[in-house]
Amino acid sequence: MSAREEVLARVRQALGETRTPVPEVVRDYRLTDGRPAGDEELLTLLVDRVEDYRATVLRCGPAEVGATVRAALDQGLGTGWAAGDVVVAPGLAADWRPAGCDVDDDRPAVQLAERAASVTAVAVAIAETGTLVLDGSPACGRRALSLLPDCLVCVVTADQVVGSVPEGLARLDPLRPLTMVSGPSATSDIELQRVEGVHGPRTLLVVLVGG
């Protein structure tokens, strides 16, 4: 017998000839937050939760995204940064992109480690947990892009902000490579004290558009 057949046969033996009926799963937890996506209260909640992870949020109107992304980079890198320090997701809207900075292409992923910052969009944001989800689409970029540069700027539009985890997951395609980001990388391994910034970006800035 192959290992596959044997493990499956063991499972069947363990469960017995007459199987117990599968219990019904009652989903009487909160499926929605009750507030519609983009509701001002949700935006406020998202800001509060993201800042609780010691990330920074900058809010702006739809016409000011480019300028606000630049302001975020000023905060993350200091005002002396050069366009060449920054690389953006290939599908990021052209007017969100600071002039002169590089668009990610199919260069070897490890080369992204030489860049100081990256800018991406997100697929969805979950207010209650302060979570941004990147889904590998052109606007979010490949996973290495939001991982290797030490400073990450994510642009979130108000309509992408939902209240709860169930609402957030329902908007995602589980066949795509997903990265859920809740604050900068962190560790609690030393005396269970949270320290921000280990291997992932040490600085996370969120540009929240609209609302």
Binding site: Y53, M180, S182
Partner: peptide, 9 residues
């Protein structure tokens, strides 16, 4: 409320 990173593939 949520861990910093969850990866799915």
């Amino acid at each position: 409320r949520m861990n910093p990173y969850t990866s799915a593939w």
